[in-house]
Design a protein around this nucleic acid. Structure first.
Lengths: 336, 336
DNA sequence: CGCTGGCACTCGGTATCATCGATTGCCAGA
DNA sequence: TCTGGCAATCGATGATACCGAGTGCCAGCG
């Protein structure tokens, strides 16, 4: 697609622009890039790259800036994930050595870690609890007419649902519901359309049904819990306060973030790290942002995802390295 | 402290500045304020107010801007909470009419509501679970050496704690621990130093102890769950992107936000709404921010708090009105 | 034929300067 | 005690010029 020299020029421009956030001129490239050519030659190549859509000029007589297409080529062809500097590798190691306990706090802390590693916002998507099996079900009365169903899943997640009861139900009936549900749910996943056979007792069956309803409904969306860490770092990435506001507003909408992560993962071949750049994200306010994500695997199955959200001029090699190592260690840590 | 006319001038300046974010000149005050005096007179008053620390001049020959002290006087003496416009009252009513279900999602949604009402960031602090009593305890095995203790509290909260077991424990022993703990914890609060008598079985007692340890430790800090809504709106309140970053960084640290809310509530007389302005907050990055908070009461006891965080030049009457109505309705809603 | 040095040209950024207008402080007079 | 008048202040705005980074193009060189 691009001959070697064009590629080298593009690479030099992207690298320089990532570092300085300033348009890159031909002189800089001629000096920096490995190719030993004069600025004039570089200029010709840059003009060509601009015609082909890889570079853009903010205005005549400024340097060139990579376009989304330019970043795309850079990510796909011109760079490898790269390695994280030693101190940061060490930091990751220590984090996962200490990490233990509840999955929620672990995912939350992971988002902070990743954000710290990259100086961008970090996104961590929890594994869907559909695959987990029920370990325990319990129906507990809170007040006369309010009960709560609590389900413990094999992955350490706890689901709960409030029930508003039509009629006052005694402890015995709640206990009966608990044991009835336990008998038919334990060992299965909540996702299956679990049919719990009727018991004959009408009020009991009504209670059981409402428990299943309550547990089922949040399962679709609420479960895609996403942890956003270091959103404030987006403020350092842009100097237009309005851009910052729009990006943050997006990050506050969990479902948008979740579907964004899903899309990015699905888009590319499943070979690990995926990158979506600028307009590829399909969300206007994020036109100046890129996302780097990788799935993490628990017990060999790709389940959740971790990623970072940064400006399109983010440091892709570093971000990819960080996402790679964190997703790998997180998966390993959760498998144990 | 301030004679009537000075107060009127101060009020006019604060109101105008809140609206326009521009330094206010004497002519504007003379026109706007109810007092029928000439700009020259207003100038004299303003000079006096500046000497006494209520106003400041960004530079000679600009208008005046309120100082923190000026806002303080305004809030304490010159304004009443004010009433929310009808459509917003309606919005609150509808919200709480529909609201139901788990306390967590309710608090979360409340923070969004309050943020929407005020266009500032909203802070909602969950009631501490110390007062709630235990309704159910259960120890569930997840893998050979990992178990999870789940406690359902009377307020609808679920506590959980992971346990790493020294030795493999069979289901019978977990069940024994469950019933032993149930017998001694149910009806009490987790905060009390609950002494669970020894059973005689050494391994069982070890398990029981570790459950209590695990449940006790997070109880101190993890519990002060705080929900932050509309943080992105802080980006609209400032035009220095760096200020935005610092404020957001603060908002990401839960414990800072929690202790901030605590302090503000404690500072002032407990008569409802409290306001902390600028440097009063004692946190340098928030020098340009103010917080308006009110406790909400469940069953007559002041427990959690709701509040908004905005720029010092926030619309105090409106914010106070919004905080007041939301805290009142939230408390009522949670009491039901 | 491709690369290079040279060169005119473009155009944003910065500095300088004058002007304008909002606002003040002060003072003398009502 | 208030007011109108007035000089003074100082940021904001705009015009102007200049500088420099960078470009595109072209003629010449290897």
């Amino acid at each position: 697609m691009l001959d070697d020299r064009k590629a080298a020029v593009l690479r030099a421009v992207v690298r320089e622009y990532i570092e300085t956030a300033q348009p890159v001129g031909s002189a800089h490239v001629a000096r920096t890039g490995d190719l030993n050519v004069s600025p004039a030659t570089v200029r010709n190549e840059m003009a060509a790259l601009e015609r082909e859509g890889y570079l853009a000029q903010p205005h005549t007589s400024a340097g060139r800036v990579p376009t989304d297409q330019g970043y795309r080529f850079f990510v796909d062809q011109l760079t490898a994930p790269g390695a994280l500097p030693a101190p940061q590798r060490q930091q990751v190691r220590e984090f996962f050595a200490k990490a233990h306990g509840e999955i929620e706090s672990m995912l939350h802390d992971t988002s902070s870690l990743l954000s710290g590693l990259t100086s961008y916002a970090a996104l961590v998507l929890a594994p869907p609890s559909e695959r987990a099996t029920v370990r325990s079900v319990q129906v507990v009365g809170l007040t006369d007419r309010v009960a709560m169903a609590v389900v413990v899943l094999s992955n350490g997640t706890v689901e709960k649902a409030m029930l508003e009861l039509d009629a006052e139900l005694g402890d015995e009936r709640l206990a009966a519901a608990t044991s009835h549900l336990s008998a038919h749910l334990e060992g299965r996943s909540l996702a299956e359309d679990t049919v719990v056979p009727a018991s004959g007792d009408r009020r009991l069956d009504g209670l059981v049904t409402s428990v299943l309803d309550a547990l089922g409904s949040p399962g679709d969306r609420d479960h895609d819990q996403v942890y956003v860490g270091g959103a404030s770092r987006m403020a350092a990435a842009f100097d237009a306060v309005d851009t910052v506001r729009q990006v943050l507003a997006i990050l506050e909408q969990q479902y948008v973030v979740v579907s964004l992560l899903r899309e990015v993962i699905d888009n590319e071949g499943e070979q690990g790290i995926s990158v979506s750049i600028g307009t590829e994200l399909g969300v206007q306010p994020l036109a100046a942002c890129s996302i780097v994500v990788a799935p993490y695997e628990i017990e060999g199955e790709a389940l959740g995802t971790v990623g970072v959200l940064g400006p399109t001029r983010m440091n892709y090699p570093q971000a990819m390295a960080a996402v790679a190592i964190v997703s790998e260690r997180l998966g390993r840590s959760l498998s144990a």
